[in-house]
Simulated assay, not measured.
Amino acid sequence: MNKFYGTGVAMVTPFQADGAVDFSGLETVVNHIIGGGVEYLVILGTTGESATLSKQEKKDVWSNTAKFNNGRVPLVAGIGGNNTYEVLKSMEEFDTAGYDAILSVSPYYNKPTQEGIYQHYKAIAENAPLPVILYNVPGRTGSMVSAETTIRLANDFKNIIATKEASGSFDQFNYIMKDKPKNFLFISGDDPVTLPMIAMGCAGVISVIGNAIPKEISDMVRLCLKGDYESARPLHYSMIEFTRLMFAEGNPAGVKQAMKELGVCADHVRLPLTKVSSATAAKISAELQHLIK
């Protein structure tokens, strides 16, 4: 599990102007992020706009990413949803070649009880072809995976190896860290609070901003994991405004605009998402000038 210590990046899916997946751009994105020194990639999570891709497009993105990566870093596939049986079918059809784990978001929209969330993940754990990382992001799903449910799952299923926590609740973080099994990884799902979360014992981050500035975020995370917070804090503070701008008009519109500025990929997103406004684009450009020297 040491492969999931450090910085993972929730990778964007680049599109062409007509909305088709840009596979040439995908290769550039993979090389850019890995070149920044990150530890692993997460493919087709929320930032990858997975909700707007067809089943075949997902398969093509997964397989091409594995080809472009060529074994350089571990890969995690985002396979989740609010229809448990559909998630199981997707896992059954998933080609695991080149992949090391599955990130599965808590069921959204349905608002299940904690028992429903537990049973959903139980079914996933019992059928998953790879280790599973839980993903708690109540701001998107409409429901919380409680600390109690997280710990219950971690204790009951050894192939549930980690949780990506994006609840923003330090009370939740405290209880997970206090009670989790020793080898169960607690991973930040929010760039801005990664530093304090690592101070609590977090294993690192699955980052959005790392799509654009992989070196800066991974350098900070490595310093934190070494306990060198004095050196990490200036990097943390330098990225605060940039991070805010990444989410000012929705994710991944902000980070795709930054990547366009850097010449990595285009800023096209699929509806219902739209590109950032010209005003926000100008602010992103200005912040990049401060960060990229």
Rank of each mutant, 00 (worst) to 15 (best):
G210H: 08
V208Q: 01
W62D: 02
F15V: 01
R140N: 06
A101W: 13
T84G: 02
S24F: 15
N2I: 12
V73W: 12
K256D: 07
G204E: 07
G81Y: 05
G71I: 11
K178D: 15
S238N: 08
E216G: 00
K55N: 05
K260C: 03
R233W: 11
S277G: 12
L288Y: 10
M11R: 01
F4C: 05
T46Y: 06
A147Q: 06
F68Q: 02
K180F: 15
N127Y: 12
A166N: 07
L103H: 09
Y118I: 05
D190M: 15
V269D: 09
G204F: 12
E57W: 02
V264E: 11
Y99L: 12
E249G: 00
F247V: 15
F68D: 05
K182P: 01
D60H: 05
I133T: 03
G19T: 03
E241L: 07
A101Q: 12
S238D: 11
G78D: 05
L130P: 01
N155Y: 12
D179F: 15
Y135M: 02
G71V: 06
S54F: 03
F242D: 07
I198S: 06
I240A: 12
E126T: 01
D191C: 12
A248M: 11
M239Q: 09
D219T: 14
Y237V: 12
V30W: 07
E92Y: 08
V42M: 07
F170G: 00
G48V: 04
F186I: 12
V276Q: 04
A123T: 07
A128D: 05
I176M: 14
M177P: 00
A162V: 06
A282N: 03
K256P: 05
V221D: 01
A125M: 06
I151L: 08
G263K: 09
D22E: 06
V269Q: 08
V205K: 11
A17P: 01
G116S: 05
P272K: 05
L41S: 04
G201K: 14
R140L: 15
H32I: 06
G78F: 03
V269Y: 15
L26P: 03
K158C: 00
D100G: 03
E57F: 01
P138L: 13
K67F: 15
I176F: 11
V29N: 10
E86Q: 14
G142V: 09
C224R: 10
S169I: 08
K215W: 10
F157M: 03
P192G: 02
D191Y: 06
I102G: 04
M259E: 10
G81P: 02
G250L: 10
Y237G: 00
V221L: 06
V269A: 04
Y40D: 02
T280M: 08
A77F: 15
R244E: 13
L75R: 05
E241M: 09
G263D: 10
N155P: 00
Q119F: 02
L134T: 09
I79T: 02
Q289I: 13
L134F: 13
